[in-house]
Nucleic acid binder design. Structure first.
Lengths: 138, 138
DNA sequence: CGTAGATTGACAAGTCCCTTGTCATTATGA
DNA sequence: TCATAATGACAAGGGACTTGTCAATCTACG
């Protein structure tokens, strides 16, 4: 994945933030942090850099006066689409040697691992858990 | 995995170095670095810390006057065994909900991914490639 | 309605891992 | 033998993450 980011100003964690906003729409910094299993302070630094790069911006949040929503700018959206297309092109080469049945099984295993490890390492609130719809994608 | 290291002086990368030496015996720093896809300088720093902790030591290398071999001390070996046992205990809980057939398929997929991505990102010498026997373990 | 507790923004200090770069020393192979 | 590659050692720097703190805001309950 890093290879596809080489020509851009993105890093892997920053790409993860963009992906999250791209897939789930405007969110607050703490919401992104919870979905990525890191602290809000760390995500805040990534968002700040994304804003400096003109890839994201913060808009008022009707549900909270101080906690703004992070959204993609047109430039950020375009860049993410480009990076994503680049990754998929590389993946096609890799996928050519894979059995779709095996891939489906692998997805089941990894989904189970994510859920199990989530239970092992974060045995608290199951409320803000990761959106299951995010997994099993492609 | 990090959870199992919480009580120890280990970090995830340092654990990886110990695992490599544990599984493949005495090796030079550059050899470990190649197997982990990082630079020898980075591994050298990890080995230095491992030595400070009394977990590894360097012994003369009959094949090279300056490039010593990294080996586990008894303390390092014991600690790794303990950590490993701890991890397996946790894994048993996770594995209870997994279909062995799916796991086997997942291993095939991941092996393919490792090899394919290795080809994509390191399109050079296939000589010092990762030992295939290391994968598909348990 | 008011207040206690939780969440959030903002700022700070610090650690860990990894990178690139350099130079002298040692190995390797033509 | 000699050019090239690999290695050790030292350095500088960056990126990501953590913990800690305090004030402002939100939420829920009495």
């Amino acid at each position: 994945m890093e290879a596809g980011l080489a020509d851009t100003a993105l890093t892997v964690p920053l790409r993860a933030v963009l992906e999250r906003v791209h897939a789930h729409g405007p969110q607050t910094v703490p919401a992104i942090a919870r979905s990525l299993y890191v602290t809000r302070q760390g995500v805040q630094a990534l968002v700040d850099r994304g804003r400096d790069l003109g890839l994201v911006e913060t808009v008022p949040n009707p549900a909270h006066r101080r906690s703004h929503l992070v959204v993609l700018t047109p430039a950020g959206n375009d860049l993410f689409d480009t990076v994503r297309a680049d990754e998929l092109a590389r993946l096609d080469v890799v996928a050519s040697g894979l059995d779709p049945v095996d891939v489906a099984a692998a997805v089941r295993v990894l989904d189970h691992l994510i859920l199990s490890l989530e239970g092992l390492t974060h045995p608290q609130t199951p409320t803000t858990s990761t959106d299951p719809a995010e997994r099993s994608t492609r």
